[in-house]
Design a protein around this nucleic acid. Structure first.
Length: 583
RNA sequence: CGGAGCGUAGCUCAGCCUGGCUAGAGCACUUGCUUUGGGAGCAAGACGUCGCAGGUUCGAAUCCUGUCGCUCCGACCA
């Protein structure tokens, strides 16, 4: 490709609405342009990267036995009603009506469609297992699009769905995808790591997210350097000792605490009750039913864990009016010992199990209770791990100290089970002639997000540093004098043609610009190898090879093509350290 | 949806508080000359519905009201 033939609108300054480095560089390097919040056009350089990431995904998934399909973005509303998600996913669904007022959803994902295909086309265990994938535009009405491609209303996702005859088969499919993901991200030059993820109402332990460490990531991950344990903070647990029981059987006693409405305030004089001796009482509404949640005073509720432990589809904190009408007291004086209506379920964090001599609200404004024993005084209906892990707590597997870090979620693998196959009748006949629902898994990769994560991970003050496997062009040929027919252009053209005919991805910067401009642009866009040709060098027969972020080396012009190919070969190998077990 | 901020040239921004002549600068763009190994210099030029609508006023980019859009924090995130 000749530079003057394509469009690479680089910017010296980043548009003011870009906040994080990868977003700025996407704009400055001319990869994308914004049409509206969360909606972007891919310009030639951006599209080339996107296609390369997609191609890596295709190669690895095909290799892992998945097959590509393409499902419609327009999906009939009725299908989503069948799965129940017309309601549960309503907030993210884009709805459109056709001329006959029929309602359609723009696909945010495709479990419904693929499962209906399976329901119609897969009838026998002989056809299983199957794994279908597609790479397509997805739509989600994100409340708040963010950071360019990181969270967009319209984005490109690879979604895959596996169908198996048995649970063991589903696990095998799951692990195949898990392994493929490791290779995909490694080949994209990304340092990524899998973490245990929340599985929501479906339950089970078979969900992993693939994370790219980044301060700007929207996820927080707990991990252990001792044994490799890693989990999304929404899911992470730790191995903390139980709450000590200070005291023996004294009766519950009310005491006045005027004006004290926080855990913090109760730790101070005159009460001086340590936070870990307090019970925090939270009121939530789970699908319109009020519930009490008890957490130790020094702990934080993990809403995701709580949601996963109820059968509710949605939970939210109760409003202050709801709290008052339920318990007759305001937040700050709440407790689960007295005046709790019998229909209200009480959930408690496991860390409170067996705790005695605790302090909690009296459900009477300005009063608390002391000498509270969880077992004796509180009717806990559900004991679960509901707290949020903190850095420094012992790893649940090996006891080492846990660390926390922020990360970008680029992929997710999930064992679904039979939830969708049951609702949408994706059944098959097994060896014995019995009708069974297929056991499903689903697997997503945010392709556009992955692209941005690569930039977030690979950049410096000069611009993007692309891994050679996904760079828009692997080589940027930079003649410093573009006079037609001149010696520099003659050499540049010859090398350019030879590289192209041997399949090297090369862009020829044939602009009549000063060298500084060309160098700055090449660095900004981030081509892995820049080959500069100037009159001075050519007088000695030399051209200059400069890897992005590396040192210059001179090679003879006549040997330039071979040197470039050799460099690329090494670079590709270095980016793909994980080799497939191919015969 | 709650909180905060911002909308002036393709990009970055000044001007607004304290209303006043023809609305500015840098970069980018066009033409010419010079320059030519890390975002050149000089000269000339083109580019604006000051987001939009209404109001106040002799007069509005500037003040007021409404509205739309964008960004950030929070809530939310199959």
């Amino acid at each position: 490709m000749k530079w003057t033939n394509t469009l690479v609108p680089t910017l010296r300054e980043a548009p003011a609405d870009a906040e994080i480095v990868s977003h700025k560089l996407l704009l400055r390097a001319g990869l994308i342009r914004k049409l509206a919040g969360g909606v972007y056009t891919f310009l030639p350089m951006g599209l080339r990267v996107l296609r390369k990431v997609e191609e890596i995904i295709r190669e690895e998934l095909d290799d892992a036995g998945a097959v590509e399909v393409l499902m419609p973005a327009l999906q009939p509303r009725e299908l989503w009603e069948q799965s129940g998600r017309a309601e549960t996913a309503r907030d993210v669904l884009f709805r459109v009506k056709d001329g006959a007022s029929r309602e359609w959803f723009l696909s945010p994902t495709a479990e419904e469609v693929i499962t209906s295909i399976a329901a119609n086309e897969i009838n026998s265990y002989r056809q299983l297992p199957k794994n279908f994938y597609q790479i397509s535009t997805k739509f989600r009405d994100e409340i708040r699009p963010r950071f360019g491609l990181m969270r967009a209303k319209e984005f490109i996702m690879k979604d895959a769905y596996s169908f198996d005859a048995s649970d063991e088969g589903a696990m095998a499919s799951y692990h195949k995808m898990y392994d493929a993901y490791q290779r995909i991200f490694a080949r994209c030059g990304l340092k990524s790591f899998p973490v245990e993820a929340d599985t929501g109402v479906i339950g089970g332990n078979y969900s992993h997210e693939f994370m790219v460490p980044a301060e700007t990531g929207e996820n927080e991950v707990a991990f252990c350097e001792g044994c490799g344990y890693a989990a999304n903070l929404e899911k992470a647990t730790s191995n903390l000792p139980a709450t000590a029981s200070d005291e023996t059987g004294a009766e519950v006693e009310e005491f006045a605490t005027p004006g004290v409405v926080t855990i913090e305030a109760l730790t101070k004089a005159p009460h001086q009750i340590r936070a870990n001796r307090q019970i925090k009482t939270l009121v939530y509404i789970a699908d319109s039913k009020p519930v009490l949640i008890l957490i130790r005073g020094d702990d934080q509720l993990n809403e995701t864990k709580f949601l996963a432990r109820t059968n509710a589809t949605a939970v939210r904190p109760a409003t202050s009016e709801e709290i008052f009408s339920l318990l007759g007291a305001r937040a700050g004086s709440l407790g689960a010992v007295r005046s709790v209506p019998p229909h209200v379920a009480i959930h408690a964090d496991l860390r409170l199990k067996g705790a005695r001599g605790m302090v909690t609200g009296a459900n009477k404004d300005g009063f608390h209770l002391r000498h509270v024993s969880m077992e004796r005084d509180v009717h806990v209906g559900h004991w679960n791990d509901l707290r949020t892990v903190r850095a420094g707590e012992p790893c649940p597997k090996c006891g080492h100290s846990l660390k926390l870090r922020r990360a970008i979620e680029v992929g997710h693998v999930f064992k679904l089970g039979t939830k969708y196959s049951e609702k949408l009748n994706a059944q098959f006949l097994d060896e014995t002639g019995n009708r069974k629902p297929a056991v499903m898994g689903c697997y997503g990769i945010g392709v556009t997000r992955t692209l941005q994560a690569i930039i977030e991970q690979g950049n410096d003050a000069d611009g993007i540093i692309w891994p050679v496997t996904v760079a828009p062009y692997q080589v940027c040929l930079t003649p410093l004098n573009v006079t037609p027919g001149g010696e520099v252009m003659q050499w540049a053209t010859r090398i350019y043609e030879e590289l192209r005919s041997s399949g090297v991805d090369v862009i020829l910067d044939d602009r009549d610009e000063r060298p500084g401009v060309k160098f700055k642009d090449a660095d900004l866009v981030g081509f892995p190898l820049r080959v500069a040709l100037g009159e001075k060098g050519l007088a000695k027969g030399d051209v200059e090879l400069k890897p992005r972020g590396g040192a210059v080396q001179f090679v003879k012009a006549a040997e330039a093509v071979e040197s470039i190919k050799a460099w690329l070969k090494k670079a590709v190998e270095a980016t793909s350290p994980i080799h497939r077990g191919k015969e």
